[in-house]
Computed example of a mutant assay.
Amino acid sequence: MTFVHTAFPARVVFGPGSLRQVAAETDLLGVRRALVIATGSARQAADQAQADLKELFAGRIDGVRQHVPTEVAAAARAKARETNADGIIAIGGGSAVGLAKAIALAGDVRIIAVPTTYAGSEMTPVWGETADGSKTTGTDLRVLPRTVLYDPELTIGLPIETTAASVANALAHCVEAVWTDKANPITETTAVEATRALSEGLRATLQKPQDIDARSNLLYGACLAGSALAQAGTGVHHKLCHLLGGSYNLPHAETHAAVLPQVARVQAPSVPKAKARLEAALQTDDLATGLFDLFRQANIPTSLRQLGLTEEQAEAAAAKFPQDVDEILTRAWTGTRPEGAAR
Score class of each variant (00 low, 15 high):
residue 223 C to H: 12
residue 233 G to V: 11
residue 170 A to E: 03
residue 206 L to M: 03
residue 155 T to S: 15
residue 237 H to D: 05
residue 160 I to T: 15
residue 163 T to E: 09
residue 193 E to P: 02
residue 151 D to M: 04
residue 238 H to C: 01
residue 224 L to D: 04
residue 212 I to V: 14
residue 209 P to K: 03
residue 152 P to R: 14
residue 244 L to R: 06
residue 241 C to W: 00
residue 209 P to H: 09
residue 196 R to G: 02
residue 207 Q to T: 13
residue 176 E to G: 06
residue 203 R to I: 03
residue 184 N to F: 12
residue 156 I to Y: 03
residue 235 G to V: 07
residue 176 E to Q: 08
residue 153 E to Y: 06
residue 177 A to E: 04
residue 206 L to P: 02
residue 162 T to G: 09
residue 177 A to Y: 04
residue 209 P to A: 07
residue 190 T to S: 07
residue 159 P to A: 13
residue 178 V to W: 10
residue 175 V to I: 14
residue 184 N to I: 08
residue 150 Y to W: 15
residue 163 T to D: 05
residue 243 L to V: 00
residue 178 V to M: 06
residue 239 K to G: 00
residue 193 E to L: 15
residue 244 L to F: 02
residue 218 L to P: 01
residue 173 H to K: 11
residue 222 A to R: 09
residue 182 K to Y: 10
residue 221 G to F: 04
residue 156 I to F: 11
residue 166 S to W: 09
residue 234 T to E: 00
residue 221 G to N: 11
residue 217 N to F: 03
residue 177 A to R: 03
residue 215 R to I: 07
residue 199 S to H: 09
residue 202 L to R: 11
residue 185 P to G: 03
residue 236 V to Y: 04
residue 198 L to N: 00
residue 215 R to D: 06
residue 190 T to R: 07
residue 244 L to W: 01
residue 211 D to Y: 05
residue 208 K to V: 12
residue 156 I to M: 15
residue 204 A to E: 13
residue 196 R to V: 01
residue 224 L to G: 02
residue 224 L to K: 14
residue 226 G to N: 08
residue 202 L to H: 02
residue 160 I to K: 14
residue 211 D to P: 05
residue 232 A to H: 00
residue 225 A to L: 10
residue 235 G to S: 15
residue 189 T to F: 06
residue 151 D to G: 12
residue 160 I to W: 04
residue 156 I to H: 03
residue 215 R to V: 07
residue 167 V to T: 09
residue 173 H to S: 12
residue 171 L to A: 06
residue 235 G to I: 03
residue 178 V to C: 13
residue 170 A to Y: 04
residue 211 D to C: 10
residue 235 G to N: 11
residue 171 L to Y: 04
residue 210 Q to A: 13
residue 206 L to V: 07
residue 199 S to A: 15
residue 161 E to D: 15
residue 194 A to C: 08
residue 209 P to Y: 08
residue 222 A to E: 12
residue 202 L to W: 07
residue 211 D to G: 06
residue 219 L to V: 03
residue 150 Y to E: 08
residue 226 G to S: 11
residue 229 L to T: 01
residue 192 V to C: 08
residue 169 N to A: 08
residue 219 L to Y: 04
residue 158 L to V: 12
residue 224 L to C: 08
residue 235 G to F: 02
residue 152 P to L: 08
residue 203 R to C: 05
residue 162 T to A: 15
residue 219 L to F: 07
residue 214 A to T: 04
residue 150 Y to T: 06
residue 221 G to Q: 10
residue 169 N to W: 00
residue 169 N to C: 10
residue 200 E to S: 12
residue 202 L to G: 02
residue 163 T to L: 14
residue 180 T to N: 06
residue 195 T to I: 08
residue 219 L to K: 11
residue 203 R to V: 05
residue 181 D to E: 14
residue 240 L to H: 01
residue 193 E to K: 14
residue 241 C to T: 00
residue 174 C to V: 01
residue 170 A to M: 09
